[in-house]
């Protein structure tokens, strides 16, 4: 295995533990916003999509990348916005 892959695995495992740790005690009231908010974060693939779609020359891979940019941005913007819409309804 290459150095990059090993580093990636280390980061992945540690980040998963962080995730389990910070989410474990979320009250049921917030489960839906938590999921849609997390969902927006999974749109982080947009970063990879920009790198894949940003090449100067249009080609097969670049087009896949640009399509991915659109899909991921729907995910990001839609996810954060809808989460905010829900959260502003929660009142004491």
């Amino acid at each position: 295995m290459s150095e990059t892959l090993v580093t990636g695995l280390v980061v992945f495992v540690l980040a998963s533990f962080v995730g389990f740790e910070i989410i474990n005690k979320v009250p049921p009231t917030l489960h839906t916003p938590l999921m849609s908010g997390a969902n927006a974060i999974s749109g982080i693939a947009v970063v990879g999509a920009i790198l894949a779609g940003g090449a100067a020359q249009l080609s097969g891979p670049t087009i896949l990348g640009l399509v991915a940019v659109v899909l991921a941005m729907v995910n990001v913007v839609g996810g954060f916005w809808v989460t905010d819409r829900m959260l502003q309804m929660f009142k004491k």
Binding site: F12, A15, S16, F17, V18, N24, M35, I41, S42, G48
Partner: peptide, 18 residues
């Protein structure tokens, strides 16, 4: 890209807990 790995792992963990 480490940031993608981190963000993805966080979402993976939260989805699994739910």
């Amino acid at each position: 890209n480490e940031m993608l790995v981190i963000a993805g792992a966080l979402v993976g963990a939260s989805g699994l807990i739910l």
